[in-house]
């Protein structure tokens, strides 16, 4: 028997995990992502001859609730038809028993990589607005993402912005009444609703997780939890630093100059008490838009100097024209008197 190094063992482990796509329309090309229980492969759809991404469980599993969660995720994505949410093409079960779904293969960069590449502030805020639009749409469909963070946002090669990984999303459904089909959906939703996995891990990412989510208070988790996470993403876009997982101070000191009005927007979105945050993602997005247009933002109380400075920046061209005109008049008067 040949001797296998630890390195070879790891490679063989990956090989053994390779999905069995026999009898499906897909061919696995390469593994492009891996989480605790699910793996994402780049696959080729042999019927349409196009690249897709396939997310599947690492192992068949009907005891931990991960399988139903993956199926629910595919149904959530199917329901969320929006340019900012990655579309799902197919879902099912592999011959080896693992549930999977197939989605668009996004060529581009993760948001954290985009920021580290030094994109300018206006472009970062444009991306942030696109993220807000996608999340606001999901909220309008009764779905809370619960794990928004830069790593779950992709920017495509044509400027598109996509929110990914709806694996721990919460479905706000009416649990009373309903037919058999919706009852079953409720069971899955209830399973996906668990704030704590059976392995004892709170769902979400420290720093981007609202206090009510971190404490496991499932009933308290609503759109405000996503508003909090968006505040964290905004902070990351402004500073290049992830927010701290500290309930008293989320924002680490940064070396870059950040406009105080944007800091205030981020702070308001990340208020520890949900009722102190923006009441909706739309309101958060509107404040960003006001900043970009040079208007006063709701999260920041301006002093007189702040206001004058903002107005000066906003009407810079008009002010320069007036000053130029006045200067010209002064020069003309001066030469007339001579």
């Amino acid at each position: 028997m040949r001797w296998l190094s630890d390195n070879a063992l790891e490679r063989l482990r990956e090989a053994a995990e390779w999905p069995d796509l026999a009898g499906t329309r897909y061919e696995a090309i390469e593994q492009i992502g891996q989480g605790g229980m699910a793996t994402v492969f780049r696959v080729r759809d042999t019927v349409l001859d196009r690249m897709c991404a396939m997310k599947l469980l690492r192992l068949p599993d009907d005891t931990t609730g991960i399988g139903p969660r993956l199926r629910l995720e595919s149904r959530i994505l199917a329901d969320l038809e929006h340019p900012g949410i990655v579309p799902v093409h197919d879902a099912g079960e592999l011959p080896d028993g693992r549930p999977f779904y197939v989605m668009k293969f996004v060529r581009g960069q993760r948001l954290d990589d985009v920021v580290h590449d030094g994109v300018d502030l206006a472009e970062r805020l444009r991306i942030f607005e696109r993220v807000c639009e996608a999340v606001a749409f999901a909220h309008s469909r009764g779905i809370i993402h619960r794990d928004l963070k830069p790593e779950n946002v992709m920017t495509g090669e044509y400027g598109e912005v996509l929110v990914l990984d709806w694996g721990v999303a919460r479905v706000l459904v009416d649990r009373d009444g309903g037919d058999a089909e919706s009852d079953a959906a409720h069971d899955v939703a209830a399973e996906a609703d668990r704030p704590v996995t059976r392995h004892g891990t709170v769902l979400g990412t420290p720093g981007y997780m609202a206090p009510e989510q971190a404490s496991g208070e499932t009933g308290e988790i609503g759109p405000a939890a996503d508003v909090f996470a968006l505040g964290g993403i905004l902070w990351f876009l402004l500073s290049g630093e992830h927010p701290l997982a500290d309930s008293t101070d989320y924002m680490p000191p940064v070396s870059v100059a950040v406009p105080p009005r944007l800091i205030a927007i981020s702070q308001k979105a990340m208020a520890p008490v949900p009722s102190d945050r923006y009441a909706s993602v739309d309101l958060l997005s509107a404040d960003i838009r006001r900043f970009l247009e040079g208007n006063a933002v709701g999260a920041y109380r301006e002093t007189l100097w702040d206001r004058l400075g903002r107005l000066a920046r906003r009407h810079r061209v008009a002010i320069l024209l007036v000053l130029a005109y006045l200067l010209l008049r002064v020069v003309l008067i001066f030469f007339d008197r001579r």
């Binding site: 063989l12 090989a15 053994a16 995990e17 390779w18 069995d20 796509l21 026999a22 061919e27 696995a28 090309i29 080896d96």
Partner: peptide, 16 residues
Amino acid sequence: VTNYLAAARREFRRIV
């Protein structure tokens, strides 16, 4: 190459 590797991995998984 893609197909052969996929087949070998599938077989390896079954054997394991």
